[in-house]
Design a protein around this nucleic acid. Structure first.
Lengths: 114, 114
DNA sequence: AAAATATGAAACGGTTCCGAAACAATCATA
DNA sequence: TATGATTGTTTCGGAACCGTTTCATATTTT
């Protein structure tokens, strides 16, 4: 992107994307859940509960519960770390990839209508 | 903005803004609440519960409760419509303006770091 | 004036989330 | 091997949100 947003454009973009999410049938994730999901998909593994909690400045139970919820939606999976069985490794799924792909397309499309 | 986002840039922007919101002390609004707030501030008055519910494809109680919550935070106010006393007019506040101003600055700033 | 309509809020039961604390499992250390 | 740390989960009471239904008030229609 060559030029940054104006603040007015930023709000319009947020509004449009929010409208699409609220109107749509997809269950809309909370800001926390979405941020966790994006961390898992945009940053390099491994992803652990503790590391995510520290990164987002939230407690570990917040991460655990968000993973429960997103796991039910098929957006992430958990697996035990075999080298250190205390750890849980959060893994990507096809469903999560598709979900974020749709989000990215939506944002990208709305950014062209400014 | 001269060029639209790439989908990868869109996800990075969403991630960065989400991180700032989750980390910050501000209470983060739900997607629905945020979208209602943006509708009130970006579109021309008057704003009624019914119109907002229709616009977002949600039920009226969803709007009422969101207004309750955001009212407590000082982001919006309600006033009776004197010409049709069934209506409630949702009004902007200084607090709401400042809140969205901070959001806009955040998004605009993060969009420059892509 | 009476009945039907419209609007927003309140009540209800169920689900989800929160922070704090307690917990089981695993690892590291001595 | 026993003790202490570390990791993720669970539990607890409290709060918020959901959809549906019911309600009070106000307006419109007949």
């Amino acid at each position: 992107m060559s030029y940054p947003f104006s603040t007015a454009q930023a709000l319009h973009l947020w509004h449009e994307v929010g409208l699409s999410q609220v109107r749509g049938d997809e269950p809309d994730l909370s800001v926390r859940q979405m941020t966790i999901l994006l961390s898992v998909y945009l940053e390099s593994p491994p992803h652990t509960v503790r590391a995510l909690a520290a990164k987002l400045h939230v407690s570990k139970p917040v991460i655990t519960r968000a993973l429960d919820a997103m796991g039910k939606l098929g957006l992430v999976t958990r697996r035990r770390d075999e080298t250190d069985k205390r750890n849980v490794l959060i893994q990507r799924t096809v469903g999560g990839s598709l979900y974020l792909e749709r989000l990215a397309d939506l944002v990208s499309a709305k950014s062209q209508e400014l």
